[in-house]
């Protein structure tokens, strides 16, 4: 009998880095193999930018500014929040296919599959953000702030989507059905991103919806991105809520909270899940 092959990596950190990379690479291979999925995930944001801009621009008056400048931060935020659901449906699909079982019988890091999943989504989100920004430029959107501020705005969007991917990954492993995850995305996240200041100033919303929009963390993300890109219209200041008055603090707090809570929870869940 031939002898068993021994591992060449021993330290926990080196294993986590190596395994995380291999799991990320797996998702990049998959994107390369199905370019149409990747292309569609880029076409949708372009469509959103064009649709919202040309359909609403004429009807929605933005005091002291123009609608295109106002809109873009909202589209950025909505798109990256919605596409983070992919982490959830992909984890559910892997679980269903039994691949998670195979991974769990290997001596790999328990964080690796999740790292690979969330980084894979970061690649998709970064690409769609670039595509949306280019489309925005073409239709007249401009960054009216400094380069460092704009860079911080982009980082904020990407970090927020990355943190949110961990939340969705945990939901995906708990719900175990890719279809349900997609429905949840549509039924929960679509309204969540709409009941915000993404497409209309929150003060135009009726009573309870306005309160919701002002306390919605997605609104804080949008408000801070708008501020960092220099896109806040003169006539529409931030809302009255504390969240709206301190959007950057709110987004940082939300980000850190999501990472600190959901990374350990997701890894713990991963260590105990199995198909059926």
């Amino acid at each position: 009998m031939s002898s068993v092959l021994k591992p060449t990596i021993e330290s926990t950190i080196a294993k986590t880095v190596s395994d995380g990379w291999i799991a990320t690479r797996r998702n990049i291979y998959k994107l390369r193999r199905d370019p149409e999925i990747f292309v569609f995930s880029l076409i949708q944001p372009i469509m959103f930018v064009l649709l919202f801009n040309y359909v609403f621009a004429g009807a929605i008056q933005v005091e002291g500014g123009d609608y295109t400048q106002f809109l873009m931060a909202g589209i950025f935020a909505q798109t990256i929040v919605l596409s983070s659901t992919y982490s959830g449906s992909a984890m559910a699909q892997d679980l269903k296919d039994g691949i998670i079982d195979r991974f769990r019988t290997l001596p790999m890091s328990s964080a690796a599959v999740l790292i690979g999943r969330t980084f894979g989504d970061l690649v998709i989100n970064a690409s769609s953000l670039i595509v949306m920004m280019i489309t925005g430029f073409v239709i007249g959107w401009r960054i009216n702030s400094s380069i460092p501020e704009a860079a911080l705005g982009i980082l904020l969007l990407l970090f927020f989507s990355y943190a949110f991917s961990w939340v969705m990954a945990l939901i995906g492993m708990s719900v175990r059905s890719p279809e349900i995850i997609n429905n949840v995305s549509f039924l929960v996240l679509f309204p969540l991103t709409f009941l915000s200041n993404a497409f209309v100033p929150s003060e135009t919303l009726p009573g309870p919806l306005r309160v919701f929009a002002e306390w919605n963390p997605v609104s804080a993300l949008i408000q801070s991105t708008r501020e960092l890109f220099g896109n806040v219209p003169a006539g529409i200041p931030a809302g009255d809520s504390w969240l709206q008055q301190n959007p950057l603090t709110t987004v940082f707090a939300a980000l850190v909270l999501m990472l600190v809570v959901f990374i350990p929870l997701s890894i713990r869940k991963f260590k105990s899940i199995s198909s059926r």
Binding site: L5, T8, I9, S18, I22, Y29, R33, G98, R102
Partner: peptide, 30 residues
Amino acid sequence: IGVSGQYAAVDQKLTGYENLEMVGRLYHLG
């Protein structure tokens, strides 16, 4: 241990070679 399950838990989107190479890397063979 080596485990082979009833559902053939291989990644359908990867090639046969990519699947096996991935498993080797995850066993930390280098």
